[in-house]
Design a protein around this nucleic acid. Structure first.
Lengths: 105, 105
DNA sequence: TAAATAACTTACCTTTAGTTAGTATTGTCA
DNA sequence: TGACAATACTAACTAAAGGTAAGTTATTTA
């Protein structure tokens, strides 16, 4: 049988298999958020990382960055359709996490 | 509303949010595999990484390491119930990857 | 006897992530 | 007015993770 991995699957995990990415997406599934809002929910993550991940996620088409030219300027990050489509993935991760609590067997 | 992240969810992503982990689990979902078999399916990953990840996955109760004292000794890695339970997650990642091909919006 | 295979380990170096501090812009407080 | 605070970053530096290549042990095959 063909056990070789699908390249699409591999590239999905280039995204999800990076530190913080999953958590950022999870947070954005609750609606568009400002930089500060995301960083408040994930305090262990540094601003530098959040900034870097947001750029990567924008590049890969998972989030859009909205600039509202108010005073002071407001910037929001929102999931695209592609991003919102990760809902099911996150839901299953949530169920698994709930069931197994993680760490101990 | 409470947007704070569940610690269980966070710790799930300490596992999945690491390079190679997702791919190794995906491979093991097709059945128990030897070290060499896994490394053949994921050629971009080094032996050092596979060795390190296998230990981590064993520690977190996702895989069991079977030693068959034949000559030469045969070692197989198999998913535990906890590991097999990630099937749904992987299935959803697969669907998403299939739909969005990854990278371009 | 030489070379090969499985399952790792070690040493070394590069890339990624973490920490701390700083910047530009605007707003608020005394 | 002047000091301080908030937002959304960036820069500089250190620490940790990952990559590369070679070595190890035991056994088997040519």
């Amino acid at each position: 049988m063909d056990d070789s991995l699908c390249p699409k699957f591999e590239s999905a995990f280039e995204l999800l298999g990076k530190k913080w990415t999953g958590l950022i997406i999870k947070v954005l599934l609750t609606g568009p958020k400002r930089f500060k809002d995301i960083s408040d929910v994930i305090p262990a993550m540094s601003d530098r990382m959040l900034s870097e991940r947001c750029k990567e996620l924008e590049l890969s088409g998972v989030v859009i960055r909205h600039v509202y030219p108010e005073t002071p300027v407001r910037i929001e990050y929102e999931l695209t359709e592609k991003g919102k489509d990760l809902f099911k993935v996150m839901e299953e991760v949530g169920k698994w996490a709930e069931k197994w609590g993680s760490t101990c067997p």
